[in-house]
Design a protein around this nucleic acid. Sequence first.
DNA 1: AAAATCAGCACAACCGGTTGTCTTATTATT
DNA 2: AATAATAAGACAACCGGTTGTGCTGATTTT
Lengths: 342, 342
Amino acid sequence: MTPRKVTIIDIAKQLNISKSTVSRALSNHHSIGLRTKMRVAQLASELNYEPDNRAIFFKQRKTYLIGLILPSLSNTFFASIVSGVEDVAYQKKYTLLLGQSRDDQEREKRIVETMKDHRVDGMLISISKNTTGYEHFKLLEKNNIPVVFIDRIPEMKNIHFIACKLENGMIEAVSFLVKKGHKIIGLINGPENFSASKERYSAYLKALRKNKIKPCKKLITCSDLTIDGNVAASKKLLALARRPTAIITFNDYVALDAIDYCKRQKIKIDTDISFVSFANEAICNYMDHPPIASVEQFPYQQGQKATEMLIEIIEKAKTENENRKTFNNLLLQSQLVIRGTH
Amino acid sequence: MTPRKVTIIDIAKQLNISKSTVSRALSNHHSIGLRTKMRVAQLASELNYEPDNRAIFFKQRKTYLIGLILPSLSNTFFASIVSGVEDVAYQKKYTLLLGQSRDDQEREKRIVETMKDHRVDGMLISISKNTTGYEHFKLLEKNNIPVVFIDRIPEMKNIHFIACKLENGMIEAVSFLVKKGHKIIGLINGPENFSASKERYSAYLKALRKNKIKPCKKLITCSDLTIDGNVAASKKLLALARRPTAIITFNDYVALDAIDYCKRQKIKIDTDISFVSFANEAICNYMDHPPIASVEQFPYQQGQKATEMLIEIIEKAKTENENRKTFNNLLLQSQLVIRGTH
DNA sequence: AAAATCAGCACAACCGGTTGTCTTATTATT
DNA sequence: AATAATAAGACAACCGGTTGTGCTGATTTT
């Protein structure tokens, strides 16, 4: 049997005093005499006493746990979110429970369940690629566990979320390309059910209008973000009779696959075709032909802000009237980052 | 005030029965009558009753939490470890607490403290680059919290750990280069205090001996794994009068910085110099001139094995005699992966 | 018919702390 | 000297479950 940890009861017994006295002595309560306080402190350190937070949290109906669910960590974008979340959470004495949905709705549900069972004080979620049903999120609402969605937002009413406003980034991207002389600009978008895809799509159209370019449906395609999907999308655009001279991609990984495809097809990057991506991943700095520009989406900051928002909601819930709920939405501005000498 | 969750007491009151009856009814105990069981089940689902695991864990002296501390997630290597850990942990009903030390000893200590306070059932740790003091790990031992170290192992006696045996990988790497005609093979190693660096170092010497090549001290250097460190190390080796025709690097990121440096210096990759790395990161597939081979260290499997080991220790501790502790060490074999057509 | 068996449930202790109230001895007040 | 005030600490309830034991009435056994 695991040797039991030292409790205040052990201390109380050894000193022949009551456990409430020990408790108060340790928290320096005024109604305990100095002599007793010192004896308790002495014995506590001798016995290596460590309070069991769970007993306290249990009574406080708190856990100081925040659940974070992301599709994956292999994408540096999400890893940055973790860092942002972690930095704020630790600072405010919360600890992070992590789960990866692997873009699988069932897994996402199971993780939500588990974290709910662990009675997290709140959750941060970036939904999976395949999530269409939202019952598991409603379950959290029922259980009064606040959720702030990050970057990948479900299409629900009355939710808290934080994301990066992509419209301005997309407009900057298109204008940048136009200024460099491009007239046929393609778009490889992400899955159609992503709000982030829809936003890119409408911003793309808006940007074209703004630059007096007539949009062409053939120049717009989607990828499921797998390598095969990315390659297929690239193939489709590059096979067009009216082939684009520039392509804007959903993120850097799509761009990398597209660039790879071009190289295999002997299509010269930056000569025959230019790429602009989203995400601005650092790893691209090592590429010989990275996208010439990329829209920064500030994942670290999104993580920070989301966590601040969540903790505020958690701590407000204790005091405030539940009836009149308000929902917090925050959009950061994205920003086009032009790489190197382009 | 947050609306209290439904408890068995609420159910008991409404049905005018005792709470123990409710508890047993819900767990289908034989001494409860069918009629009562059904009434309880009915009301429980009506009220949306959800048991509070914490009360149960509390009594069981368990949390089903596993703490995982890694230096960082920006390195895909560690992200893979997370996935391995997560997959095994979730399957065995444990949940993951995550912390990044950012290669800062103080931060590592604080995270250990926090996780200890949350009474994790066990911890998985990959130590930070700068960790030299081990008091915080001894603290865990004192608190009877088992720890399994992963990949980055402290130099302590009597610890559980899992790592990847690098010797064979290094020997394969050197032999591979020799077979390709290289005679002057440099080594950019990691920080000297890493056991992983020491292992690479001695394996490198052993491999040279095996291939009848006389080692030369000048061909061996270390990097602190920052970009500047990597570049400085590259510079040092490439400035040698007897310049190496091949360099083995501590990991892929070092190789990328070295390759980048070569390109800027107009040293032709794969012609003037070849690189072999450790880690076999997937992102390198997108490079024009990735290392021609890389030693796979199986981070996902390390994560899995470490978690299996930890859970076994946790669950064994309950029943076994504590006096005769044994320590588990597991080494996976590394494996040289030759890229593409080389 | 009295004793034994058993189903079905209530009571209370426990996990490890916190906190409100009550008790007792000492000191201060009038 | 009698009373009030105060210091120091004991007692018990509570958080939300689980579990060992005891009690009650009905059925079975002899």
